[in-house]
Amino acid sequence: MTVATIPLRILIGKVGLDGHDRGVKLVARALRDAGMEVIYTGLHQTPEQVVNTAIQEDVNAIGISVHSGAHNYLLPRVLELLKEQEADDIVVFAGGIIPNEDICWLKSKGVRALYLPGTPMEEIVQFVRGLHETVLPLTERIGTGKRDT
């Protein structure tokens, strides 16, 4: 397989307490139909759970949905934990009810893309597909391992 034909691995899940999973499920299906491997974590994940899973599953990106208004706490927390784990090559994108002002702020914090309800699925798929371009060769993504030793 060439790099381009190795499926991207994407973690899709919900952080926080709300259970509105209509959107994430559709995103999960759309990414699968676009040939990606979606690791679906289900509901009520904490940022710690998401990051642990992302590392064990070695995903290229994390897509999370928040509808509870807690995005300004939860999303930066995910980014912070990724950094702590030396895994900040994993791209984070998000969807949910997120006001424009917050979108700007979250992007400045490192959330790569944010999607509001009503976004065409194709737009999200295109974004994730685009990650193929930025995926580092495997041997350059291993990190130093210093954190563990």
């Binding site: 990414l31 699968r32 139909d33 491997e37 979606v38 690791i39 679906y40």
Partner: peptide, 27 residues
């Protein structure tokens, strides 16, 4: 399409904080 939705871990969430449990989904 070659794609997959891997959802087995949803049922294996009791151990997420245990560093001696490793779970990997494979398609």
């Amino acid at each position: 399409t070659g794609g997959a939705i891997l959802g087995d871990r949803i049922r294996m969430q009791s151990h997420w904080s245990d560093e001696h449990v490793y779970i990997r989904s494979m398609a």
